[in-house]
């Protein structure tokens, strides 16, 4: 093979690698954590702090850069997830965010928690849509609309975890992984900053609402409300706006 042709071949291989590399980088697999980022090692001080945290406290855990994913400018994406669990400190990459996100603990907003206070060591049958007497407050609007059953999202063996399409488990604090399996454009906007609400000021640590903080998972649509009082245009003396 002559030199120019070899050069062209190398170039072509390089281009293919580049394209496939880009494509791999952009394919967001919401249902899978990136390879090699399963559980980050947490130093003992962080583990102790995480263990001491009250559920619902706004605290960021130690964040670590994730190897596989790169953001604009080649900087790694990272997300800090928090919960009251001692293993919190686990860091994984999520979507196209450029700043660490801190979330509130989901458990703090549940009034029937922990689940094991009733479901101690029991396997729950979740293949039909029957909802037990203790959960009469749940209106299964979303399952009815989508044809889902309880087990589509809830784990039968361990009721305090969510189950993803891949069969993998996710904690209640990782509900974004569950929701993002279908609502990927919303999840992308959430990770970037256009969806979801920021809580802790515009500066510094980025604390945002997670999906179930606004959307009731069983009935997620926006509700009709009476608005605050209308402006009295004739009294302010101005033009319409």
């Amino acid at each position: 093979m002559s030199q120019p042709r070899r050069g062209i071949a190398l170039l072509a291989i390089g281009a293919v690698c580049l394209v496939s590399g880009c494509r791999e980088g952009r394919t967001i697999r919401w249902d899978q954590p990136p390879a090699g980022t399963a559980v980050a090692q947490v130093d003992s001080a962080t583990a102790a702090r995480n263990a001491a945290m009250e559920p619902g406290a706004l605290t960021t855990v130690q964040t670590m850069p994730v190897v596989r994913w790169k953001g604009p400018g080649g900087r790694p994406f990272e997300v800090g997830r928090r919960s009251g669990a001692p293993e919190a400190g686990y860091t994984r990459l999520f979507g196209t965010i450029t700043l660490p996100i801190a979330l509130r603990s989901r458990a703090a907003s549940l009034n029937q928690y922990p689940c094991t206070s009733c479901h101690q060591g029991q396997k729950i049958v979740m293949e039909n849509k029957r909802i037990g007497d203790a959960h009469q407050n749940i209106k299964p609007v979303h399952p009815d609309q989508t044809g889902a059953v309880c087990a589509t999202c809830h784990s039968s063996n361990d009721v305090e975890t969510l189950t993803l399409k891949s069969g993998e488990r996710a904690s209640l604090d990782e509900s974004y992984r569950l929701c993002a399996q279908c609502h990927f454009s919303q999840a992308d906007a959430w990770a970037g900053g256009a969806h979801g609400k920021r809580l802790d000021g515009w500066e510094g640590r980025r604390v945002v609402m997670a999906c179930p903080d606004c959307h009731n998972p069983h009935d997620p649509s926006v509700k009709v409300l009476i608005p605050f009082r209308a402006p009295q245009l004739e009294r302010t003396g101005g033009h319409a706006p």
Partner: peptide
């Protein structure tokens, strides 16, 4: 209409 006063949305 900036003066709406009914259930929203």
């Amino acid at each position: 209409d900036p003066t709406y006063q009914h259930e929203v949305p």
